[in-house]
Design a protein around this nucleic acid. Structure first.
Lengths: 176, 176
DNA sequence: TGGGACATGTAAACCGTTACATGATTGA
DNA sequence: TCAATCATGTAACGGTTTACATGTCCCA
């Protein structure tokens, strides 16, 4: 796919565990092509639009397989700016802290709704695939439980965040 | 405090939302001193040990206040390598995926236990402070609900992670 | 004809990690 | 005396973010 397509797909389907800016995507695609992991060709050579479409090479596939075969043996460390701020918030004006937490609540509420809509999409996809024949459908089907598992993480994470925000808001309100 | 002390304290009390390597801590302390936000002096000028103790300046305090007064209006994006791996795990050997998830389970179980021990420490601290008089004690007391709130996030997060791992393990086992 | 989505890039700054490097103190 | 802990730093690399920069296509 093209860098633009990759960015769009990431924004709607992997945003619950990974994201990247277009600047990083375009430079990384170039670098991966230099390293022989991808190849690209320009579409629309006649027109003015220079859309560069990338495909993975056998070397590239090998690298992915090698990476997947090297299990993760460490924990990813969380870095949550909101928690840093809260940690140092005892001397702040309660109302400012409350406003900030409420704003975050809105953002997380919206995120949860996005994820739930995506999950509904997964389920629809699963139903369609179950009633479809052919290898292509089976290929997609096998991935769905894994995609759903990551999305379930996103949903449960946002639910946790919301309930944590509610408890924390109650705490700050009781101090104010 | 010294860089070493800062690192030790972060490792045991903020590791549930922020961490840093000693290399970053030492270079950043130097940079903050250059910028006038900290000042340092060498302890033990007689001895061989050159321990550099930092204090915050009024300018530094001002920067923190300014930072706290600028509320966070964005969501922190999660980046979870394990989820990236799982997203692409449909074609992997089930047993390899299961081993990897079980290993992560152990790591998160241990983290949860660390956090619970820390939370118990907070509660003991609170009890001691409640029965102590003086301004110093009151100053510490006011921070405890905020520290506890961040720790509660860590605990709930690890509990979520464990239950998500269990559900995901069950899913992969059912496919295998 | 103007605005929004499509489309692609570069440069600089900044942040974070890994590796390299050294030496003192303390207690078993 | 040896190992663990205390203690501090630098260098190189790589990943991430922000800002700058440009131009097309399509629809209302």
């Amino acid at each position: 796919m093209t860098g633009y397509e990759l960015k769009s797909i990431m924004d709607e389907s992997t945003m619950h565990f990974w994201h990247a800016y277009h600047s990083q995507i375009y430079t990384t695609l170039r670098k991966l092509e230099e390293d022989g992991l991808l190849i690209s060709d320009l579409e629309d050579e006649d027109g003015k639009l220079n859309r560069r479409r990338y495909s993975i090479t056998e070397t590239g596939r090998g690298e992915i397989r090698a990476w997947l075969n090297k299990p993760l043996t460490e924990m990813v460390t969380i870095k949550e700016e909101l928690l840093v701020r809260l940690f140092f918030s005892a001397d702040r004006d309660s109302s400012a802290v409350i406003d900030e937490l409420r704003f975050q609540r809105q953002l997380h509420q919206r995120k949860l709704e996005d994820y739930l809509a995506l999950a509904a999409g997964h389920m629809v996809g699963q139903l369609i695939n179950e009633n479809t024949e052919g290898d292509e459908s089976a290929e997609i089907m096998s991935h769905i439980p894994f995609w759903t598992a990551t999305l379930r993480f996103g949903i449960e994470y946002e639910q946790l965040y919301l309930s944590w925000l509610d408890e924390t808001l109650a705490m700050v309100e009781s101090l104010g």
